[in-house]
Design a binder for these strands. Structure first.
Lengths: 231, 231
DNA sequence: TAGATTGTTAATCGATTAACAATC
DNA sequence: TAGATTGTTAATCGATTAACAATC
């Protein structure tokens, strides 16, 4: 049962719905139609209804969607209602940034431990969490029932650590290292490749410039022609 | 001319090609066929050829692609061959993580300045860059010919700062704040919504668990039936 | 030349949008 | 009840894959 596979595109959009519903909730909006929401989010109402109906009928004809109810339901779908025990591997700036992001705890992501290879970091305390050496790693994961790991270490060490995490029973890796990890089918990896993100930005700003350049040249070409005509 | 619009999906994949080509280059591989590359990258050879041919014919029949040439050309397409002056707004852990990521400079992204609102951070020096107060912001952007800004501040301040950046002439915003920014058409925004990324991971690990649960139940159901049959 | 592999066209697949009957 | 808006089916659009002629 429940055989339908949810497309990747839909999963990508779910957290964005969640965020907009949170904003609506905070500003005291009780109900919203797919049409109103579509205007705010700059997507089609049709897409919103299609997306939501992958998971069930959360709305009511003639009324729309109850904001609080829909918010809660999407939270359940995303697994935000459960608790996820997390370790952070790599206690550099990025690892610490994640550790300090308080909102994560609010959503059920509990940082159980931080690890690093650098002996100068080991023993330091960030947000009440002691930074440990990676020797402990496997035992710690088992003892603390850790399910997820954020990987904020250089790519050179990432593959090796990922293997150890998987062997220790980790089921989800949030990968910030600049490599694609090879893991078994029952382990999920979510990549945050910051350098790729920055390159996309670079591509887009450059192609925007090129476009403006072309339009300007076109303008000049027109003027050129006009001048020619006058001769 | 050059009127064909490149699809978002293609742009997303380009930096990944770039990364794989870099690896090949580093390991001394001179030439590669779309087929070999497709195996490494776990995509179809057809997709690789289609993607690349959006920008021109970089390969040669019977030979494949010259790794170094293709790497350079994709670099040009991504704008990595040019220099981009960058400021970081928000000098917290995340801002510092970006400032410390040396690779960015290697690819032509030059961090001209860092800014923060927190007076306790102002005056500190990170990687040789002094953290400034935001009063300076507009003047600094103009004086230093800054084109891009990384926004690593809380969502409450993000919209206001984004407006100021745009007014000062910024053309690209790398947005880490948990909001969608409203900017004019000629300004590009690349979002890195970490909380959404983590929720996607959560979704996927939960649906993986559910799936395994279902399979287990199915197994048990089968055994149940077998037991019934024996009676 | 023969073999390999591209560039490109055509076929397929999936995702998005439109439309509307169902129903609150 | 009448009006509004969903849930869902059908139509459209775009992206991916397959196939193959061109050509190195």
């Amino acid at each position: 049962m429940e055989g339908r596979e949810i497309s990747k595109a839909v999963v990508t959009r779910l957290p964005r719905y969640y965020r907009y519903l949170e904003e609506l909730l905070e500003s005291g909006v009780e109900r919203i139609s797919s049409n109103e929401l579509s205007v705010r989010m700059k997507v089609t109402a049709s897409q919103i209804r299609q997306d939501l109906n992958n998971f069930g009928g959360f709305g009511q004809q003639g009324y729309g969607y109850n904001v609080k109810y829909l918010y809660t339901e999407i939270g359940k779908i995303l697994g935000i209602d459960r608790e996820h025990n997390l370790v952070i591997i790599g206690a550099g700036n990025l690892g610490q940034a994640i550790a300090n992001y308080a909102n994560f705890e609010k959503r059920g992501f509990i940082i159980k431990g931080m690890f690093d290879i650098n002996p100068r970091l080991i023993g330091l305390v960030v947000r009440g969490i002691e930074i440990r050496g990676v020797d402990d790693l496997e035992q710690f994961i088992v003892d603390n029932n850790v399910q997820m790991a954020a990987l904020t270490i250089p790519k050179t060490k990432a593959a090796e650590i990922a293997d150890r995490l998987v062997d220790a029973g980790i089921k989800a890796i949030w990968n910030f290292a600049r490599v694609d990890l090879n893991v078994p089918d029952d382990v999920v990896v979510e990549n945050v490749h910051l350098s790729e993100s920055l390159m996309r930005l670079s591509y887009r700003v450059c192609s925007m410039q090129d476009q403006e350049e072309r339009m300007k040249n076109q303008e000049e070409g027109k003027h050129e022609k006009e001048r020619e005509h006058r001769h």
